[in-house]
Simulated scan of single mutants.
Amino acid sequence: MSPTVVIILIVVALLVVAAVVYGVRTGRRKQLRTRFGPEYDKVVGDADSRSEGERELREREKRHAELELKELSAESKAKYSVAWEEVQIQFVDSPGEAVSTADGLVTQLITERGYPTGDYDDRLADLSVAHAQTLEHYRDAHAISERSAAGEANTEDLRQALVHYRALFADLLGENPVRTDGASDAASTPTVPTQKINNHDSDVAGSRPDATSR
């Protein structure tokens, strides 16, 4: 076999290997995009490179696989549903306290499902593997909750926080799945009488929550 033929065969072999590697990488990337949804773009965008971001997502998958997650019993689901109804009732007279209660309730639910709840960022990373579609709701709710604690959130902000919390809450509970194409989706809006809310925040123009069904 002539040296030229050998070189050609080597080049062909390298091209085949490169094609296989590219195909595997592309398939893996598609799988990550499908699993993490908008979280894929966020993590990759925050990383120094696409490879580094994808490595982080694969690490999340590995950690998630080691968690002992569990489904809730029908009794537990019923208790959480009742607890959420009470949060929405509490919102009428005490919006800030209701948001704080909602935060605690969501954290409790996360714990009962088997997720660690120590560090907030780690909590987000763990949740992103199976609940990426509602993760941004959780981020927004958490941010408003912190502003509320600092006295920087008005009633409409607090109402939106409750809507955001409900998105992840419903996702984790597995009951009444909520749409995630808009935080102000009417189907996700807490039922709160407009008049009473305005009594607590008369300075907020146009902040009337919609009275819609849960």
Rank of each mutant, 00 (worst) to 15 (best):
V87R: 02
G53P: 02
A183S: 05
I197T: 10
E66H: 14
D210K: 04
G23P: 08
I144W: 00
D121T: 12
D157C: 05
D181Q: 06
Q133P: 03
Y115S: 03
V21W: 08
E66P: 03
A170L: 03
E146I: 15
P38H: 06
L135I: 07
V12D: 02
V192I: 15
D210S: 08
G206W: 04
Q195F: 14
Q90M: 14
Q90F: 07
E52Q: 10
E85Y: 05
N176G: 13
I7T: 11
D126P: 00
S49C: 06
I197K: 01
G114M: 04
I10W: 09
I144T: 11
P95N: 11
S148P: 02
A130F: 00
V21Q: 06
A143L: 10
T117P: 02
S100A: 15
A125K: 10
Y138H: 12
E86W: 05
V204N: 08
H131N: 07
R166K: 09
V92F: 03
Y40V: 13
G118M: 01
Y115E: 00
E61G: 15
A78Q: 12
Y80M: 03
Y165P: 01
R214F: 10
S128F: 07
A183Y: 13
H164R: 11
P116G: 05
V16N: 03
D103V: 14
L158P: 00
L135G: 01
A187V: 13
N176M: 09
V43S: 00
A186H: 06
H164D: 14
H64N: 15
V24K: 06
E66W: 07
E112L: 15
E75L: 09
T111G: 14
H131C: 03
G96L: 05
S2F: 11
R159T: 14
R139S: 11
E136T: 12
Q133K: 06
I197H: 05
T34R: 10
D122A: 11
Q90L: 15
R55D: 10
